[in-house]
Design a binder for these strands. Structure first.
Lengths: 94, 94
DNA sequence: ATAAACAAGTTTATTTTATAAACCAAATTA
DNA sequence: TAATTTGGTTTATAAAATAAACTTGTTTAT
């Protein structure tokens, strides 16, 4: 039987966010927006879901006088991603 | 930029169906139901979507007096699956 | 100095999906 | 012959994704 797919990660935008964050120390909202080409609203919502689940940490600050939202993957997020990769591999490895 | 994920395949149950069908000549409703552990209603709906999209062919007949719904992947479905695998690989290959 | 445009998000509303529950017709079993 | 099972479909509900509208503050042009 195929492994179930973590619904939090089985979402195009959230998976893209995690995929980006896993390769870098951290990334801010503006960078994620450019990389994913998502609308700001959608990105905001999905960052929130990942943060609520504890898959990423979000740090809000100001750079000069502009707000800045920094995102970083957590150990829990890394582990969830690893499991997701294992699971989906079953589906795509014939 | 990450490739977009075909929304028709980026669904746990539809992906499972295609994943199964790609490895066999054909499979019937009962078999798919056992393999996926999906409810009959959900399976019925998702088979319909894949069929409407031309990703699978559905052949209804009777065996003795019991109805039988046979599913088989099409070339279009095979091609879509191949592209989906290429796309999602970008997300999961760190 | 002030109006217009832009930046960085958030909130709310709408659309789309997924899923389950209810249903149906025919066959089988008790 | 009544109840249950089989093999589904249809309809209703819950959840998700997405877009549109809004907010707060900043920069630019007049």
């Amino acid at each position: 039987m195929l492994k179930p797919l973590d619904p939090l990660l089985h979402s195009e935008l959230r998976l893209a966010i995690i995929s980006i964050l896993i390769g870098v120390e951290d990334a801010d909202f503006v960078f994620l927006r450019k990389q994913t080409a998502a609308t700001a609203g959608n990105l905001s919502v999905q960052i929130d879901k990942l943060s609520t689940a504890g898959y990423i940490e979000v740090e809000k600050s100001f750079v000069g006088r502009k707000p800045r939202t920094l995102c970083r993957i957590t150990d829990k997020g890394r582990e969830a991603f690893k499991e997701y990769v294992e699971a989906i591999s079953e589906y795509i490895n014939i």
